[in-house]
Design a protein around this nucleic acid. Structure first.
Length: 984
DNA sequence: ACCGCCGGGTGCC
DNA sequence: ACCGCCGGGTGCC
């Protein structure tokens, strides 16, 4: 390891560039190391003026002192210019470096004088290209481009002219002869065009860019899409798209191609974008981005890769455990002792992994096809956990970790740490595809000998804490029980910090937090001392911010192959893509300057969107649930049927409903005639909520007055209270109202003085946008300081009071009838009972209890811990576990997996049909084995029926939301809605 | 000879 | 560096 380069910050100036004082790199340092070094340095340089996009002009300068430096450049090669203020001969010195950061020379001092001023004061970014004369021994010309903000142009021009230099305007030729791009130039393929004017930047169209990247990141999507069977050790049969992913990933890891934008000509490798050339072959880029939709089994695909492609397509050599051994109980840590991590309790023992039937239906999901006996075989080694203050885990999470520890200790032997001896040596691995027959003894012997050269066996997986347990769980599920895979959980304060131990593992799993904490603890990060075979970033978008410590920590890891897993498409700008590109070590883009000059800026000038998409598309493999392979969808889910069950209210209910409706109609009718519907929108909504509640159960109906008359003489605090009350009416029952600005569900709702509820960020944006902002719904004047926020309150005592005065309702009766019948027919069927009113869920609990149902509950008020427990209990298929989940419509994110249920009862319709669909997807998703039947209860001749009518309109409106942000149209739509709802 | 010219030494910042 | 610059040698052509 070379000593870290000394870096100097220029004190007292705005100059932030750091530079490398080792003008001649250590002889032992390869060019690639030197590039890596640069890349690391680049982070400390304060960047990033992306708005510096005006080209002031160009200038021919000279690079001198070539003979003192080893850095070489090619014709038309880009060079970077770095200030060197501590130069003993000239404080204005400007270094000229090539793409790999090796110094080529200096800018001649006369020009260095104004350049130093311009660079130090950040008046312009100066970039260089050496047009010719690259073989000169003493000096060579350099074409300089000055980029910056328009307002700095004048002073740049002035500074230069003061020293007798004149910028050539960008539109004119700058003496950068186009002839140099002629037939004589072997570096620039014809397909690459030179942009017009004096911009000698080799620009590519999006298509050309894509082609280049495709050389590396082959797009398996629409084409033949090869499939590959995983290694024997993978116990789960892969789905077609997972086999494709495996084939793609294996080929990505074993590929021998030059990285994109590199070309070989006569023993020299040229980078097409920078014209940089080296004798050494550029390092291969092994890895990529797997961006399949949530639920398509990225984790399984990655596990398959780890086991299948250890070296040159050979599987990871793993010791097999025969059955005798497994039953002896000397398994270091059975999964059972890990229970705290993820209570994957039992499944139907009669389903075997190997039966095709089971495989087809269970896929990657819940592993509902593993018997207990089979499970207890993956070797887990991990540190016991005590408070890892170091990793910044929240107390809540910690307590979860403590549980883990508790269980661990309770288990047999305390977390045995598998010794490096148990691992197979590298050489042996190459000879035998799977060291299945190797005896334990032999292995130990060999392992001891080969330990020294055992470099890069282990895969490091970094993930957010929330999915840590999932990884452990997935290894358990998908790795055949008779192979011994060492998975080390690098987490908790007792974790082993021995690099040689870590590198002897098959897999090490840790979190971004732990990694960053170690990295922050200066020069003592065990994970950074290991040469990993593979580094895998789960939820890769976590490293979007290049300044974050965790990002730096991740980029600093040493690995042969690198993967990014992300469930969300990469939606951000090219700029955000840079961290990922940098992580993948696509040279020379690991250095920000080259990324900016060759990709970022050229894309800005052309078609950034197309450019970005081409880049992303070519670099990633992404499939959605809708993707097809050979015309068949990637995921074939069981059917989903939606039925509407109409409810007729009892006479009593009807009377109550009608009286409230009449009252409401009168009120709203008055608003209509006054033309003040929208001014009183909160009241209108409150009336509607009440009617919706009455459709469900009379007890949901609150006791406060229907309308809250707003008098103008109210004191501010009275007004405030009244507004909060109104908001309570609208939001309090857990219903799903939406913001008229973003048309989405309310996030941090606020109410205006004119009583309209919006998302706080949405309305604040509106207010900021114009001087005298008006309420989008009623045009009343609004101000930020008049917005009233919805108080975060907890009221859970109410459900108790309703207990004693329980009476049924038509809707609840209907639900109970279906549930009872269902239980009779097939007691294994589980159901979701969904409502927007959490209070309603509480009411439903009563008859459920009476009928002896075992049920779980999930709503937004529950702690993370309680949620996990509820989900776990429900997903468990054992006898006696809950068969019903009471679910509040919007609880849980898209990730919520409730596949144990195959029936859904939607107790009340939502405003937003998308919210309903999302809810259905919680059980209608990968892992669902039965057809899903959804029942919507809709009260006849009621506001509910009208709501379903509106849902369709809503869908249209949402689709057009982009074109028309027209408030008038929205207003009219609202008014129409209310008319429909109230039959006015 | 307070010049010009020649030729060798030399050369980044 | 096939330059420019410097400084010493030299001096009609």
């Amino acid at each position: 390891m070379q000593a870290p380069p000394r870096r100097f910050h220029v004190a007292g100036s705005s100059q932030l560039t750091t530079f490398d004082f080792l003008s001649v790199p250590d002889q032992t340092e390869t060019l690639f190391q030197s590039l890596n070094r640069q890349s690391a340095d680049d982070f400390t340089a304060g960047d990033d003026d992306h708005d510096a996009n005006a080209l002031f002009g160009t200038l021919r300068g000279n690079v001198v002192g070539l003979r003192y430096y080893s850095g070489v450049v090619n014709k038309n090669e880009m060079v970077s210019l770095v200030r060197q203020p501590d130069n003993p001969y000239d404080r204005n010195a400007v270094q000229v470096n090539n793409v790999y950061g090796d110094q080529v020379g200096h800018i001649k001092k006369e020009l260095a004088l104004p350049m130093a001023y311009i660079m130090d004061n950040k008046l312009a970014k100066v970039e260089g290209i050496v047009p010719f004369g690259t073989t000169n021994a003493f000096s060579m010309p350099v074409q300089l481009h000055f980029w910056g903000k328009e307002e700095h142009k004048a002073s740049v021009v002035e500074r230069l002219s003061r020293s007798g230099f004149k910028l050539c305007p960008p539109s004119k030729s700058t003496g950068f002869e186009t002839s140099s791009y002629g037939a004589g130039s072997m570096l620039v393929p014809k397909s690459f065009r030179v942009s017009p004017g004096c911009l000698p930047v080799v620009q590519m169209t999006a298509d050309q860019l894509k082609n280049e990247f495709d050389k590396l990141f082959e797009d398996v999507m629409d084409t033949k899409g090869q499939m590959m069977e995983p290694a024997e050790a993978v116990g789960t049969v892969l789905l077609a798209h997972q086999k494709q992913a495996l084939a793609w990933m294996v080929s990505r890891e074993n590929n021998n191609d030059l990285p994109p934008f590199w070309e070989q000509k006569n023993d020299i490798y040229y980078n097409l974008l920078t014209n940089f050339g080296v004798k050494e072959r550029p390092e291969r880029v092994l890895g990529g981005i797997l961006s399949d939709d949530m639920g398509l089994g990225k984790t399984l695909s990655m596990i398959a890769l780890i086991l299948t492609n250890f070296h040159k397509g050979m599987p990871l050599p793993l010791e097999k455990i025969d059955d005798e051994e497994t039953t002896k109980g000397d398994i270091p840590l059975s999964v059972a002792t890990l229970g705290g991590l993820q209570k994957k309790t039992t499944e139907e023992p009669n389903e075997k992994v190997k039966t095709d039937e089971a495989v087809k239906s269970t896929e990657v999901s819940a592993g509902s096809s593993r018997s207990k006996r089979q499970k207890a075989k993956v070797t887990y080694t991990y540190s016991s956990d005590s408070e890892g203050s170091i990793d910044g885990v929240s107390p809540k999470k910690k307590s979860k970790a403590e549980q883990k520890q508790g269980k661990n200790k309770g288990g047999s032997s305390k977390g045995r740490v598998s010794s490096p001896m148990e691992c197979f040596d590298f050489a042996a691995a190459l000879e035998t595809s799977a060291a299945a027959s190797t005896s334990k003894r032999k292995v130990k012997k060999k392992g001891a000998v080969a330990n020294a050269e055992m470099k890069g066996r282990a895969t490091l997986i970094i993930c957010p804490l929330s999915v840590l347990s999932n990884w452990i769980d997935q290894f358990e599920q998908h790795v055949r029980p008779n192979v011994k895979l060492s998975v080390y959980l690098y987490y908790g304060s007792d974790r082993s910090r021995d690099p040689s131990f870590l590198s002897s593992q098959d897999i090490v799993v840790t979190t971004y937090n732990v990694l960053a904490a170690d990295f922050g603890n200066k020069n003592d990060s065990p994970l950074h001392k290991v040469d990993w075979l593979r580094v895998v970033l789960d939820e890769g978008h976590t490293i979007r911010n290049p300044n974050a410590l965790q990002t730096k920590a991740v980029l600093d890891l040493k690995a042969e192959r690198r993967w990014v897993l992300t469930g969300t498409p990469i939606q951000n700008s090219l700029k955000d893509l840079w961290t990922l590109i940098s992580f993948l070590k696509l040279k020379p883009f690991t250095v920000k300057e080259w990324w900016n000059r060759t990709i970022q800026r050229p894309s800005m000038m052309g078609d950034p969107e197309g450019f970005r998409q081409a880049l992303i598309k070519s670099i990633t493999l992404r499939r959605t649930k809708a993707s097809k392979i050979n015309g068949r969808p990637v995921v074939e889910l069981p059917e989903r049927k939606v039925f509407i069950q109409h409810i007729t209210l009892s006479e009593e209910e009807k009377q109550l409903y009608e009286s409230v409706r009449k009252e409401g109609r009168t009120v709203i009718g008055r608003y209509f005639s006054e033309g003040s519907v929208l001014t009183n929108y909160a009241d209108v909504l409150a009336i509607l909520v009440r009617l919706r509640q009455l459709c469900c159960h009379p007890h949901l109906f609150g006791s406060s007055a229907l309308t809250v008359d707003s008098k103008d003489d109210a004191t501010p605090s009275e007004l405030r209270e009244r507004l909060i009350n109104k908001m309570n009416l609208v939001l309090g029952s857990g219903s799903d109202e939406e913001c008229a600005i973003c048309l989405d569900s309310l996030r941090s709702p606020v109410i205006t003085y004119c009583a309209h509820v919006y998302c706080k960020p949405c309305i604040c944006q509106v207010i900021r946008a114009e001087q005298n902002a008006k309420c989008p719904l009623c045009r009343a004047e609004i101000k930020v300081d008049q917005l009233v926020e919805y108080p975060v309150e907890k009221n859970t005592s109410e459900s108790l009071e309703t207990k004693d005065k329980w009476l049924p309702s038509s809707k609840v009766d209907a639900l109970m009838r279906v549930l009872l019948k269902l239980r009779e027919e097939d007691s294994s069927v589980k159901s979701l009972v969904v409502s927007q009113f959490t209070k309603f869920l509480s009411l439903i609990e009563i008859p459920l209890r009476e009928a002896g149902f075992s049920f779980a509950r999930l709503d937004g008020s529950m702690s993370q811990k309680k949620r996990a427990a509820a989900i776990q209990a429900f997903q468990n298929s054992e006898r006696g576990t809950p068969t019903i989940m009471l679910l509040s419509l919007k609880a849980g994110g898209v990730g919520l997996n409730l596949t144990a249920a195959s029936r859904v009862f939607l107790m009340d319709p939502a405003w937003n049909p998308a919210a309903e669909d999302q809810c259905f997807d919680r059980c209608h998703r990968l892992g669902q084995t039965r057809d899903v039947i959804i029942t919507k209860f809709i009260v006849k001749d009621s506001v509910e029926e009208n709501m379903t009518r509106i849902q369709k309109k809503k869908r249209d409106l949402a689709e057009r939301a982009f074109e028309s942000k027209n408030t008038n149209e929205m207003k009219q739509a609202r008014i129409d809605e209310i008319r429909t709802l109230m039959d006015i």
